[in-house]
Computed example of a mutant assay.
Amino acid sequence: MREADLDLDLNLLPVILAIAEEKSVSRAAQRLGWSQPKVSIALNKLRASLGDPLFVRGSHGMEPTPRALALVAPTKDILQRIRNDVLAGGAFDPAVATRKFTIALSDIGEMTILPKLMAYLQKHAPQVSVSSVTLGPEETVAGLEQGHIDLAVGYFPDLTKRNFFQQRLFSHTFISLLNAKHPIKGGRLTMEQFLRLGHAVIRAEGRSQEIFEQLLAKHKIERRIVLSTPHFMSIPFIIASTDLLVTVPYAVGESFTKIANIRLIHPPLEVPKFDLKQHWHRKFHKDEANMWLRSVIAKLFVD
Score class of each variant (00 low, 15 high):
3 E>V: 13
4 A>I: 06
5 D>M: 03
10 L>H: 14
14 P>Q: 12
15 V>Q: 13
19 I>F: 00
20 A>H: 01
24 S>Q: 03
27 R>D: 11
28 A>P: 02
30 Q>V: 10
31 R>W: 00
36 Q>E: 11
39 V>A: 11
39 V>W: 14
40 S>A: 07
42 A>R: 02
43 L>Q: 04
44 N>C: 04
44 N>L: 12
47 R>Y: 02
47 R>N: 05
48 A>L: 07
54 L>W: 01
55 F>A: 03
59 S>W: 11
62 M>R: 05
62 M>K: 05
68 A>E: 06
70 A>W: 05
71 L>C: 04
78 I>R: 08
79 L>M: 09
84 N>G: 14
85 D>Q: 12
91 A>K: 13
94 P>C: 03
95 A>K: 14
103 I>Q: 04
106 S>T: 03
107 D>S: 13
108 I>Y: 15
113 I>D: 02
113 I>G: 00
125 A>W: 01
129 S>P: 11
131 S>A: 12
132 S>Q: 10
138 E>Q: 14
142 A>G: 06
143 G>N: 01
145 E>W: 05
148 H>Y: 12
149 I>M: 00
149 I>L: 01
149 I>F: 04
156 F>M: 00
156 F>Y: 02
158 D>N: 14
159 L>K: 09
159 L>N: 06
160 T>F: 03
165 F>V: 11
165 F>Y: 13
171 S>E: 14
172 H>D: 14
174 F>A: 09
174 F>M: 11
176 S>F: 01
177 L>R: 09
178 L>K: 08
181 K>W: 10
181 K>M: 10
182 H>L: 07
183 P>E: 12
186 G>C: 14
190 T>H: 04
190 T>D: 06
191 M>G: 12
195 L>Q: 02
197 L>G: 11
199 H>N: 03
200 A>L: 15
203 R>Y: 05
204 A>I: 08
208 S>T: 11
210 E>K: 07
210 E>R: 08
212 F>Y: 14
213 E>W: 13
214 Q>M: 09
217 A>Q: 10
219 H>Y: 13
221 I>D: 02
228 S>E: 13
228 S>I: 06
228 S>W: 12
229 T>D: 07
230 P>H: 07
236 P>F: 04
236 P>D: 05
239 I>M: 08
242 T>W: 15
242 T>I: 10
242 T>P: 13
245 L>G: 08
246 V>Q: 11
249 P>T: 03
250 Y>Q: 15
256 F>M: 13
260 A>Y: 02
263 R>Y: 13
270 E>H: 12
271 V>T: 10
276 L>T: 09
280 W>L: 08
289 A>C: 01
292 W>C: 04
296 V>F: 03
296 V>W: 05
296 V>T: 02
302 V>M: 07
303 D>A: 06
303 D>G: 06
